[in-house]
Design a protein around this nucleic acid. Sequence first.
DNA 1: CATGAATGAGAATTCATTCAT
DNA 2: TATGAATGAATTCTCATTCAT
Lengths: 231, 231, 231, 231
Amino acid sequence: MAYQRTPYVESKRAEARQRLVQAAVALIERGGWREVQMSAVATEAGLSTGAVYLHFPSKTDLLAEVYRTQAGTELHVLTLIAEQPVPAADRLRAGINAFAQRAMKNPRLAYAIALEPTDIDVEEVRLHFHREFGMQFRRILDSGVAAGEFTIADTRVAAACIFGGIVESLMGPLGATALARGKAASARRQPDATALVDGVVAFCFHGLGKPAPRNPPTKRRAVGRSGRAKD
Amino acid sequence: MAYQRTPYVESKRAEARQRLVQAAVALIERGGWREVQMSAVATEAGLSTGAVYLHFPSKTDLLAEVYRTQAGTELHVLTLIAEQPVPAADRLRAGINAFAQRAMKNPRLAYAIALEPTDIDVEEVRLHFHREFGMQFRRILDSGVAAGEFTIADTRVAAACIFGGIVESLMGPLGATALARGKAASARRQPDATALVDGVVAFCFHGLGKPAPRNPPTKRRAVGRSGRAKD
Amino acid sequence: MAYQRTPYVESKRAEARQRLVQAAVALIERGGWREVQMSAVATEAGLSTGAVYLHFPSKTDLLAEVYRTQAGTELHVLTLIAEQPVPAADRLRAGINAFAQRAMKNPRLAYAIALEPTDIDVEEVRLHFHREFGMQFRRILDSGVAAGEFTIADTRVAAACIFGGIVESLMGPLGATALARGKAASARRQPDATALVDGVVAFCFHGLGKPAPRNPPTKRRAVGRSGRAKD
Amino acid sequence: MAYQRTPYVESKRAEARQRLVQAAVALIERGGWREVQMSAVATEAGLSTGAVYLHFPSKTDLLAEVYRTQAGTELHVLTLIAEQPVPAADRLRAGINAFAQRAMKNPRLAYAIALEPTDIDVEEVRLHFHREFGMQFRRILDSGVAAGEFTIADTRVAAACIFGGIVESLMGPLGATALARGKAASARRQPDATALVDGVVAFCFHGLGKPAPRNPPTKRRAVGRSGRAKD
DNA sequence: CATGAATGAGAATTCATTCAT
DNA sequence: TATGAATGAATTCTCATTCAT
């Protein structure tokens, strides 16, 4: 009776927890997982070191939650896209686009999440999410195959090529931005997400393809930006 | 060069340096970058801790050299393949195959090199090599385009899709193997590199295909392996 | 006394206090003093952490009270025995027996109370009680001397030998049981309290004794069990 | 060859290790196990914190070694006495005496070693040594029984009574001295080891006596010291 | 050149105690 | 009174790097 948690109190706990995760994210944005020290997280969140342990039993748990939060959001977006009742080709493009756009927004974070693991246990979470991302792309591909849109045989590998292609394409630009810390990071030219997306989409639809009529009926700007190098 | 006195001494130096790098590699194979501690490297190499610093000014330099050595070998193989005077399609397949086969041989090491960085400065080396790998694949693609074999527009993105696709496809299996340390790691079924290679090749040549006549003139087993799941 | 308002409130206070002590005892039984953390005690007692401090100004005070409660009970029993209007020899045996039997009942607790101090201030309480136990045994001895039953000169040392002998005899078995936590503690054979009691009694009455006619007129099982080793 | 350890270097290692143990002992003498913090030990030994870990993998290992060193010395002395080719009665008295004398010399240390455990793993070492001490006393008793000097049936319990009696007799005085830290500890009157030894010996030889012809030929003051309280 | 003991600045974690609500 | 989140000092352990020998 006297002990019953009120929504208020409950939200206070949840809020502190949330604040800690956000603090960790902020630190990652600043300098990668390396910056995520328990005391730094506490300070960033406006709490004491000990308080962190009221919400997370260990650093690993905090890191895992951070990963889950960030990657989970991405995954959710991708899942929603994969479920849209539109042609698989459109969903595929939308998925690729969503992924690339978000990564461009916050390169440091995207890089850390996608490619810069720390803790061995967080690695497992990362593997899980990579598998999940692959699964969602594969869902799109499978439904496309079922609808006769695609005729690819191995959708698992194709999904990996798509997801891996995005990540790898972003890796250079992301990494360059990510590693530029104290330096005039803002001075760097943001890489062109549109060109990347179009390139991946083109590859998906035609492979190294003989035919390769540049995607003419696409709603987006149609010509000439895909071949540009940017580094 | 400042140190060279006699060829003998020079080679002794070089040999010790080599031994240190190999010791680090052995440690990585055993448990990832995490195991690479300066004193452990020294012990593994049969030297004293202090001796390591006679060859590498800092841990970062050692790690970078390790990365260079390992990735450099891979890159060299890929470069040789890219230079072969055979059709681009053949070189592409050979390149993909070389990469996948080697990774399967030593998953722990491959995983560490491809996806498990430690030091921020090693990151730069890693980025460099990823770019280089992409460049070599791109070389193949470009020559294929020049020869009329391929008609892809954005060879940079295509190369990233190919390289990223391989890495991503391997990530699950590699990661699973890599993370399984004390556990019955040997019990795990080694993933099938052939299926992976075929899948990537198929995706390269047909994209998500419409046409998709299963690659009939390929020398490898022609049917039915591409769709198999392996996890 | 400053806090008493109504008997009801007073008893509520007393009850909570009692509950806290019992909670601490439960924790000790589970894993020794080490387990007695203020928040754990609170949880065990169904109270809040802060509430503990409404009853005990500090952890030391709580621990002291726990010690007093537990050792006090033992001491009370021993005191009652010491006051019985029976021959000193009978009281001595009864006292030894009472002590050993209770320790066997709850080895973990007995071990913690007798031999596993934590807080330096609790040490004082422990010393006090050890002195008190010695005093009670000495009372028995002194009255035996007065009655002509015993002719020992230094009853203080004799009492210490008796009390210390019991504790030391129990120490091995108790410690073994006490330290065996997760392990198959139940699998351990409970040491034989009867043999121990008889052994101590025999030593008390005859020392290393020339004469040593096994205690024949004792009401308990008369022969042959005293010499058995049990470990 | 270049790597061969010279006796000098070897002794340097051993010496540092020894110095650390002695530093820990010094801290115990000052304030019990509580004072034994790794950094404090390092400072006391004139080393850095990290250096401690070059010699002991963990605090527990250091503590265990400290215990072993201290208790081992005591045990060695007792063992030597137990092996003397003299009547068991003489050895018994000598053993008791050795133990008591040494404890009186350094009460704080004796108290910590005998009765103030810290680490759960050190507890095991303590149990081991208590068992060993008991064994040595028992050896004396057994040989006495074999020689017809004693007729006690349960030498195990008798040994425990003797050892426990000494410890318990010392506990009060030791504890009092031990707990008096900042206070004028030196001002305390050292308890009389001789009386204690005589008392224990008397109890061993006569039990609570009937016969009890006061030990007349003892060189020490014959009368009146046994009943005195000293605290 | 080689050695390996020593350094010492961190980083994670614990827990008695406090205090705003 | 009661709560329980928050505090923060204390402590163990790590490891790249240095330096006297």
